[in-house]
Nucleic acid binder design. Sequence first.
DNA 1: TCGAACCGTCACACGTGTGTCAGGGGTCAA
DNA 2: TTGACCCCTGACACACGTGTGACGGTTCGA
Lengths: 126, 126
Amino acid sequence: MRIGELSERTGTSRRLLRYYEEQGLIVSERSPNGYRHYDERLADRVLQIRGLLDAGLPTRIIKQILPCLDKPRVIHFPDATPEMLATLELERDRMTERIECLIRNRNAVSEYLDTVRTNRRPDVAA
Amino acid sequence: MRIGELSERTGTSRRLLRYYEEQGLIVSERSPNGYRHYDERLADRVLQIRGLLDAGLPTRIIKQILPCLDKPRVIHFPDATPEMLATLELERDRMTERIECLIRNRNAVSEYLDTVRTNRRPDVAA
DNA sequence: TCGAACCGTCACACGTGTGTCAGGGGTCAA
DNA sequence: TTGACCCCTGACACACGTGTGACGGTTCGA
């Protein structure tokens, strides 16, 4: 799959895909002519990246999280330094905080919507 | 409570508090001399704002969400236009997506950490 | 050969956050 | 009164990260 197809599949501009590669979030093989060539799974990976970016994580952190997502976990043990693990723990906790904050506020919005919708008379205000 | 105390309580610079006010996220009463004066509850509000910003929501959206959080909901019915409600629904759904994305990835990180920690021999790699 | 798709790169836009400066005032205590 | 704090406004500039537009040039496929 070349960059155009990945772009269409993920709804992400080619420009941005190159940017993600520049930031080290995705990698690509290259044809002899220099064209990027992507694995099928990259599509999901890109969507995941976009989700995390949208959730406020910077690329620097996402880059560290992504290796945790690969299925055959066997390979990644060696490169897990104590510092890396500490960083991951910290990030995991920050993600948990984000989740709780979002849930609280999401529920508040939900509740508000319910209240407004059940009391369908704006001019009553009570 | 004046801006200095609010700044200390929330760990937010005075500069940034004025910025939030400029963006319409918080309001302040003014003493005759022009000093900003804040209610006790503003501290929580500021922390909430910072949490939402950290979770990737722009000030524009946060401004619309904040009124949903006030307890005596009675007052806000009148200014709930259909467009506003639609926006809130959309935002609620986007928050839900963010939450799910974060939970997925947080769990993956957690699982990764568990796996690495139980297999305490990096050089084995299996 | 022609158009579509790709390449790398430069430059910019936007939002959040910060520092700082000038120029003004309020409050309190020694 | 003086000094040490606190606060006000407005403005300029900057940093950083994400995302985009546009450039000229190359390669592919019909």
